[in-house]
């Protein structure tokens, strides 16, 4: 049955959305920054992995071993050079600086790689298209399952890391109240930089999966930012797991929409975003702070 298959594919697509949303949600939860360059950084990572994979004919997974630490370092640098400084001049400045960064990154990628679409799919062999047939017309792609598994592992790992490790505790404390955290000996600048490094490292992983499951070009970034944001807001239950649920709702809605009309994929996704938003406004009454408390509290 086509509908059952579409729903299953939508759930797996949701795994990808959760993966791409992970870093955005983490950065917002800790640094209170919505990084508008999020999608562009994911695409940048995909290009870096593609460069390594293409030039030395290595597996993208192997390339990730080099790219994840590199992007983590970039995240550290991003926090120290751009985000820290913009946060000092007000809550709105990070939006402007990260938007400028996104415009710059997208066009630099275009300058370097041109308008051709790329994909990492040729570099992963059979994994790109192998699938199992479950029955009832439902198939499960191996890559889709892997993506979903990685999303689960990353979300779970981050949750554990925040709950159980000293750095995780320091991050939660700093996110709650940086000044008080300083009083008990936490170096909030270092903690923020570490959090940014972790966030951007997850973006590198997400970007690689973007490259393996689909094609990308220099201007793919903004769409990824929007999907990630929608997943977070739809999920909005105040934890990283909410992001997973949000991603799944978004993925299922898009796949069902695409069954109605070829243009229905994106329209249904955006529509479900606005419907959830409206429902939450109605349910939460007039206090706007409780509405997006979910997003503000994520991932803690």
């Amino acid at each position: 049955m086509i509908w059952a298959d579409q729903i299953v594919q939508g759930i797996f697509l949701g795994g990808y959305y959760a993966l791409i949303a992970c870093g955005l949600s983490f950065m917002f939860g800790v640094l209170r920054i919505i990084n508008l360059a999020h999608g562009s950084i994911a695409v940048l990572s995909a290009y870096l992995v593609w460069m390594l994979a293409d030039r030395w004919n290595v597996s993208p997974f192997l390339a990730l071993v080099a790219i994840v630490p590199a992007m983590a370092a970039a995240g550290w640098l991003l926090q120290r050079t751009v985000l820290e400084r913009s946060l000092r001049s007000g809550a709105l400045t990070p939006l402007l600086s990260t938007f400028g960064l996104a415009v710059m990154l997208d066009n630099l990628l275009f300058e370097k790689f041109g308008a051709d679409t790329r994909s990492l799919a040729p570099n992963i062999g059979d994994l790109a298209f192998n699938s199992w047939t479950v029955g009832g017309g439902v198939t499960i792609g191996q890559l889709a399952l892997l993506t979903f598994g990685v999303a689960l592992a990353l979300l779970g790992g981050l949750q554990l890391f925040l709950n159980r490790t000293p750095l995780g505790r320091a991050i939660r404390a700093t996110a709650e109240d940086a000044d008080t955290a300083e009083l008990v000996g936490i170096d909030s600048r270092r903690v923020y930089a570490a959090a940014a490094a972790i966030a951007i490292a997850t973006v590198a992983i997400a970007g690689t999966f973007l490259g393996m499951r689909a094609t990308f070009d220099p201007y793919t970034g903004p769409a990824q930012l929007i999907f990630a944001f929608e997943a977070i807001v739809i999920g909005g239950t105040g934890s990283l797991w909410g992001t997973l649920i949000g991603g799944i709702v978004l993925g299922v809605a898009q796949n069902l929409g695409s069954q109605v009309s070829p243009r229905g994929f994106l329209i249904a996704g955006h529509a479900v975003f606005f419907v959830v938003l409206a429902a939450r406004f109605v349910l939460a009454g007039r206090d706007p702070r409780t509405l997006f408390g979910a997003l503000r509290r994520a991932p803690i």
């Binding site: 751009v82 400084r85 913009s86 001049s89 400045t93 402007l96 600086s97 938007f99 400028g100 960064l101 996104a102 415009v103 710059m104 990154l105 997208d106 066009n107």
Partner: peptide, 10 residues
């Protein structure tokens, strides 16, 4: 343009 926006905001 992107670089200018970034630098001015900073």
């Amino acid at each position: 343009l992107g670089a200018c926006a970034l630098l001015f905001s900073l």
